[in-house]
Design a protein around this nucleic acid. Structure first.
Lengths: 183, 183
DNA sequence: TTGATATCCGGAACGGCGTTCCGTATATTT
DNA sequence: AAATATACGGAACGCCGTTCCGGATATCAA
């Protein structure tokens, strides 16, 4: 990569990080380019799709979430481990406003730059769920896909201004539902 | 209203109904005008916002939902009544793809043409919930706002292609959560 | 140092969007 | 038939995502 290209690439990443954080993941590509004092062509050359940009920006966060999940696999309390990770991932989507929509399309599109990250998250959740189920700490009639749906739904709710106040409340309701073991 | 205006109004409504059903509630206003062989100005004159158009189109559906709720108030089984109505409203949002987003903003915006309809739905759900709670058939630690959130989340999930297959499954999970009475 | 060349940049261009506005046409009333 | 009120169409404005290419710039070879 040519030196000027590298510089632009790094600069774009830095600016995009700030702008995304301020405006949400659905800012216009033009805005990002403008804020970086760069032509829109330059932005698209380095990141051919919005998802490619998001993937690059969030890779470390995704890695963190995966690492956290792996660490929690060894946590003594399988139920608390699962719940803690759920809270993490919902916090993540909330922290990165607007990321949910691209993730939901990415999970269905193997060509999306975000596809792998989503699949990894889903698998990590499924694994934590299975462990909790094996320990008899989570309801048995739930699979990874369903868990992912529940997480996504909670994350979506959290993006709705009208719902903000009830965020923790609904999380705890869903938590109880997941952990409830019929006895 | 002038005769030609009335004609256009009716025609627009008919065309919009068809187009919305085919393309979802987020079709471009231009498309609607085009399909109706009408200038875009004419569409906007009759329906100054997309929400105004949606409200007019769906008014009868909203009324039906309200009437259904009222009828269910007299149903012997308060729990089944609540669940039946939940299924109805989720079916409604699914039938009218794309209606959820405008509804979620409308509920926070008293000036939206959809605001009243949303408030009525929320109130109807809350009422059915209270009745089930009084009968000891629904968990007591849930209020109307939270119920509305749960419905919205399920409706949102149902709009996600990736989730389609698990639609009924998750509905029944949430149903159990709502109806579960700690004993 | 000086070409030559590969690479990269900026921004115009295309088609689409929501929305506003107004000159023109049509219906209604006098 | 003339006057008036009303409604119509679509151009215009400023946004958007995305593509494309002429010109600028960095790198490399001589």
């Amino acid at each position: 990569m040519r030196a000027d290209a590298r510089k632009n690439y790094d600069h774009l990443l830095a600016v995009a990080q700030k702008v995304l954080q301020e405006q949400g993941a659905d800012v216009s590509m033009r805005d990002i380019a403008r804020q970086a004092d760069v032509g829109v062509g330059t932005l698209y050359r380095h990141f051919p799709t919005r998802e490619a940009l998001l993937e690059t920006l969030l890779r470390s966060s995704f890695d963190d979430l995966a690492a956290k999940a792996a660490a929690l696999e060894n946590d003594a309390a399988a139920d608390e481990a699962l719940v803690a990770w759920l809270a993490d991932i919902i916090g993540f989507t909330h922290e990165h406003r607007g990321i949910l929509a691209p993730m939901m399309s990415a999970i269905e599109d193997p060509d999306s730059a975000l596809h792998d990250a989503c699949v990894r998250l889903k698998a990590a959740g499924a694994s934590l769920l299975r462990r909790a189920q094996s320990a008899g700490l989570a309801r048995a009639d739930l699979d990874g896909a369903e868990l992912f749906d529940l997480i996504a739904a909670l994350a979506w709710l959290r993006e709705q201004p009208a719902h903000a106040a009830r965020s923790e409340r609904l999380f705890s309701i869903v938590r109880d539902t997941i952990l409830r073991v019929d006895r």
